[in-house]
């Protein structure tokens, strides 16, 4: 199953083996049920589940989405049913499938991250992805992911409560130096990093003079962000020794190959699913074809293979 086109597609991300390097990005694939109507989600290496919070959240008022050149802006606002609901109702569904389950969590305080890690590791998820692109209520709403010390504090708290479950910290691109955050996260004990989360952006309707999103600004994703994401994966790969889950604008096999060459071990597909539900499988197969064409035995040979000038 893990060999496609004669290429071994299996990879290991922070000790977690996956049959292929393609996972779906948090918030774009729910808990797998919807796209599971189109194909067996066991075809995927893994799923980063919709971002969870300790308590259910209603999210932001609509409109929550705007189309932009080769991208979209979203301001969902972490609408989710809460971590307990996930464990009771969604995790058992995911467990009926053969793919790695990566829970994605957001908290208002480091303690909240800890509580969620305790619950999720107890429930037996395969990995925890810590989203630090959310406001720290104690620090006047400043995003955790923008200050190395705060990101480190959250990472430590998560690690302390996650038991044997690997912790992957999801980095925000809305920073001056992403390597500073990545290093802080590595020093705090993170097992992996994922990047990038969405880039803050805005679109204005010139007729009404109102921002299209009700929240005025939102997060940019889709092909428009790919070069930014590849650059950041490359910078982070050069700065830390922990493995990377690369994402941001991946829509084709070649995009995924770029991520791997830049230093990622695995790749997440997000926004591309909206245009094509089968995008993650096409990315996987095109990546395998590309690796076969280059005469590779294993897709993991691509990781870090970029030859900088």
């Amino acid at each position: 199953m893990s060999v496609i086109n004669g290429v071994e597609m299996g990879v290991t991300l922070a000790g977690m083996p996956m049959k292929n390097p393609i996972v779906v990005a948090s918030g774009t694939f729910g808990f797998g049920r919807e796209y599971g109507q189109f194909y067996d989600i066991s075809e995927l290496g893994g799923i980063c589940c919709k971002g969870l919070t300790l308590h259910p959240r209603e999210g932001n008022p609509p409109p929550r989405i705007a189309e932009t050149p080769m991208g979209i802006l979203n301001s969902v606002g972490l609408q989710n049913p809460g971590v307990d609901h996930f464990i009771a109702e969604e995790l058992p569904y995911l467990r009926q499938h053969d793919l790695k389950v990566i829970a994605n969590i957001s908290g208002n305080t480091p303690e909240e991250y800890g509580v969620m890690c305790e619950k999720l590791s107890g429930a037996g998820v395969d990995m925890i992805e810590v989203n630090v692109s959310c406001p720290n209520v104690k620090c006047g709403g400043l995003q955790y992911g923008t200050v190395p010390e705060m990101t480190a504090e959250v990472t430590e708290c998560a690690k302390k409560h996650a038991g044997n479950v690997p912790v992957m910290v999801k980095l925000s691109p809305n920073v001056t130096d992403i390597t500073a955050i990545a290093k802080a996260v590595e020093n705090a004990g993170a097992d992996a990093v994922s990047l990038i989360n969405t880039i803050r952006g805005m679109r204005i309707d010139v007729k009404t003079r109102r921002p299209v999103l009700h929240m005025n600004t939102g997060g940019l994703s889709g092909p428009a962000v790919l070069p930014v994401a590849v650059r950041m994966v490359w910078e982070v790969a050069n700065a830390v020794n922990i493995p990377i889950l690369g994402m941001g604008g991946v829509a084709k096999g070649e995009d995924a190959a770029q991520m791997l060459l830049a230093g990622a071990t695995a790749v997440a597909v997000g926004t591309a699913c909206f245009a094509d539900p089968y995008a993650p499988l096409k990315v996987r197969d095109d990546l395998a074809a590309l690796a076969a064409e280059q005469g590779l035995q294993s897709v993991s040979e691509l990781t870090g293979g970029v030859k900088p000038w």
């Binding site: 774009t28 919807e34 109507q37 008022p61 609509p62 979203n74 609408q79």
Partner: peptide, 27 residues
């Protein structure tokens, strides 16, 4: 009507206030 992303219930962007909470127009 609401602006949509996925159209199938996975992305939660098509929120519409129904019964005091956000439901999703597409699903």
């Amino acid at each position: 009507e609401e602006r949509m992303g996925c159209g199938v219930g996975a992305c939660l962007v098509c929120a519409c206030s129904v019964g005091g909470s956000y439901k999703h127009v597409c699903k």
